[in-house]
Structures are given as structure tokens and as C-alpha cells.
């Protein structure tokens, strides 16, 4: 099987998997067979795309699957509103906690989740850079690790900080990351 055929098969499989999951999740009772089939289909299509064209193939297959889902959503959007509207439950979305906070407290939270968490992320990413180099990684790999880790760690840290109401815990999360990373930065130096 040549690469193009493999890629077409992967795209077709991704598309079918979305449809299978649509059928599965529309049922009143769970069908583990359909769920498994849909998810395995995704896994297989990703593997096929990777085997054919590597990262490019995976990106294309992801776009195909997302496109198929958006089309199915468009179909769902056209369906008439339920006749049982009044009886229908409100969407199961949690109601956010309504803790009263002062403006000052909000600013402090912003500073911890924003600049402080960014500094902690940068420290951790720079420490990770030294680890990559210590494990005989190339300088390019080490530098790209920092470029990729800074936004990712910052996103995770900010979420963790904001999910904690207690100020001490918020500070402790960011401070712990910085404290663990700092010795690496002090001991490390130029490449």
C-alpha cells in the first residue's frame, strides 16, 4: 500500500470513527462496543497517518476528524427545538462558586497566576533545558524544550493556582516550582 492510499484510508477511518461515536453517544444506554470501535478507529487512523506522512499526516487526519464533527454539529444545530423544552434539564454545567473577593485580593490572585507563575514556569523550563543537555540532548533540543515548556507550564500552573482558594496554597504552588528549579539554574551555567 503506497503512502497516499494509506493516508486516504486514515482520513476515511477518522471520518467513520466520528460517525460511530455520534451514533454511540446518541443512544440512551451506553454501548461499550461502539465506544471502543470509535476510539480504536481514531487510534488506528492516527497510526496510519503517522506511518504514511508523519506529523503532517496526523495534522491532516485531525483536521478531517474535526471537520466531520463540525458538520455533524451543524446538522444538530438545524434540528428543531425539543417539544419537551420546559421539562428539559438545564445543561449540566456547574455553577461557579460565588466567593466574595475584594479587588485587592483579585489583584493578588492575578499577580500569582500571571507574572509569578510565568517566572516559576520559566525557571522550571530552564532547569529542564539543563536536564536535556545532561542527558546528551542536542543544544537545539534543549532550547526548543524551553520554548515549548514555558507556555505549557504557565497554563497548567495558572489553572492550578486559580483552582485553589487558599492564598497560601496558591503561593506555595508557584514558589515550590521555582525553589525546585533554582538550584539547577545556579549550578548550571553556559552550555
Amino acid at each position: 500500500m503506497d503512502e497516499t492510499t494509506q493516508m486516504c484510508l486514515a482520513a476515511g477511518l477518522a471520518l467513520t470513527s466520528v460517525v460511530v461515536l455520534r451514533i454511540s453517544w446518541a443512544r440512551r444506554d451506553r454501548s461499550w462496543v461502539l465506544n471502543l470501535a470509535g476510539r480504536l478507529g481514531f487510534a488506528l487512523s492516527t497510526a496510519l497517518a503517522w506511518a504514511a506522512f508523519g506529523a503532517w499526516g496526523v495534522a491532516v487526519v485531525m483536521l478531517v476528524a474535526t471537520g466531520a464533527a463540525i458538520i455533524l454539529l451543524a446538522v444538530a444545530a438545524l434540528e428543531p427545538a425539543s417539544a419537551r423544552r420546559r421539562k428539559e434539564k438545564a445543561p449540566r454545567i456547574a455553577i461557579e462558586s460565588n466567593t466574595a473577593r475584594t479587588t485587592q485580593a483579585r489583584i493578588v490572585t492575578f499577580l500569582i497566576a500571571g507574572p509569578f507563575a510565568l517566572i516559576a514556569s520559566l525557571a522550571a523550563a530552564l532547569a529542564a533545558r539543563l536536564l536535556v543537555l545532561a542527558m546528551n540532548g542536542t543544544e537545539a533540543d534543549a532550547n526548543v524544550t524551553v520554548l515549548g515548556l514555558v507556555p505549557l507550564l504557565w497554563a497548567i500552573l495558572s489553572t492550578m493556582v486559580l483552582m485553589n482558594d487558599r492564598r497560601r496554597t496558591q503561593i506555595a504552588i508557584a514558589a515550590a516550582i521555582t525553589a525546585v528549579s533554582a538550584p539547577f539554574l545556579v549550578l548550571g551555567g553556559a552550555v
Binding site: W25, A76, P80, A155, M163
Partner: peptide, 28 residues
């Protein structure tokens, strides 16, 4: 980066992420 954080927190805040994946009551 905050968009990534929104994706993380949004996914965690969605208890029925798969079950509701195709439910779109747009005409209400």
C-alpha cells in the same frame, strides 16, 4: 498560554464532555 489554560480548565469543568459531544440545542 491562557488559551491553553482555558482549554484545560474548560475540559475539567465539563462533567459530560463525551456524552454531550453532539448535543447542540441551537434553535432554543
Amino acid at each position: 498560554a491562557m488559551m491553553v489554560a482555558l482549554a484545560i480548565s474548560g475540559t475539567m469543568a465539563h462533567p459530560r464532555i463525551f456524552r454531550d459531544a453532539f448535543r447542540l440545542r441551537a434553535r432554543r
